[in-house]
Design a protein around this nucleic acid. Sequence first.
RNA 1: UCGUGUGUUUGAU
Length: 419
Amino acid sequence: TFTYNCLLNRLVRANRLDMANELFQNMLEARCSPNASTYIVLIRGLCRVGEVQEACKLVKQMKVLNLKPGLIDCNVVISDLCKAGRVTESLALFDQITNICTPDVVTYSTLIHSLHKVGKLDDALQLLVQMTDQGLKPDAVLYNIVISGLCKARKVSDALMFFRTMSKSCLPDQVTYSTLISGLCKERKVEEAFHLLNDMIERGQAPDVVTYTTLIHGLCIASRMDDAQKLLEQMVISGLVPTIITYTTMMSGLCKEGRVDEALELLQEMINRGCTPTVITYNSLINGLCRANKMEKAHELLAEMCKRGYKPDIFTFTTLIGGLCNAGKSDEAMHLLEDVVSRGEVIPDVVTYSVLMGGLCKEERLDEALALFKKMVQSGCKPNVITYNTLITGFRKAGKLDGALDLLTEMVESGFHPD
RNA sequence: UCGUGUGUUUGAU
């Protein structure tokens, strides 16, 4: 059994699930009994490639065979399922696991976090209550997860209330403060964010790179680029090394202020300091060039990023499509979309389509915009409020109030609330 | 022994 497990582990790690499965069958035929580890290895492999159904079958088999994996193994599997975006299956697994072993704070934390990610805040809260009913106390990580979930749901004041209940046994750490600072910044409460920075220092928690980057981002949102620049310098003086995220934040901020040339200078300076750009860095800069109507340069930068081995993603192409639309070149934008789709580079999403529809509307090509809308729906991509707003605004501006009204009706019928 | 949960950056009205 041990030998088989080792081999299976290697096969799974090498992404050879077909061979792993073959070996597993082989193992059963050889009357060599799999144990819990055997199953865990296979289940992890299946989760990683998204074969959740199969993974769940194995979980059931394991139960039938009365095999009992350890708690950490269970947590690993739950975490894998969550990472594969299968919260429902994770919860099902969780139910089964409660029969085999007792979930701990990590188990609950993993599940609560993934419920937040799919917007099920209430279910998450219920699970938290269930946990405390079991006599388990949240630790700092779980506090941070809950605080982060509240912040992302735009409930910063609730997050702050929950934060204030942290006491002796579980004090706020750097992550707690950075999470709250980020939440405040996104609600445009930079001053409060800086107050919290002072609090954290007073309470003996040193701000780290993430804290600084978060605050820099907050200043960017407030269009306070010069303050952002100063904070970056202050951060370096205090001995912290800016990361690629810090630089990208700065570049994105400069771009949004129309200072794309400075952003490009910063890119060069950053590379000289030995920090490597990411796709997000390039996307931010391409966006800056598009906003500044420097489409040729935007394409040049795209070519450069490709040459350096980066794969442009949906953000890159949507940004370029938007840039072309803004420049009144929705024909080129349409072509670009067709190109990337036919080359299979990316699958357009609701934002991509909406941007392009907006471009068509701007040129009063309303029929084409509607045709694109249909095409989007046919391809299985659901419109959202912004999609409808874009179209309605387009029709309205073109004086086609009937068309606008029809769309509004359709929007309401589809279950959207007009804003 | 090792392996599991948390914070910061990019696209639309």
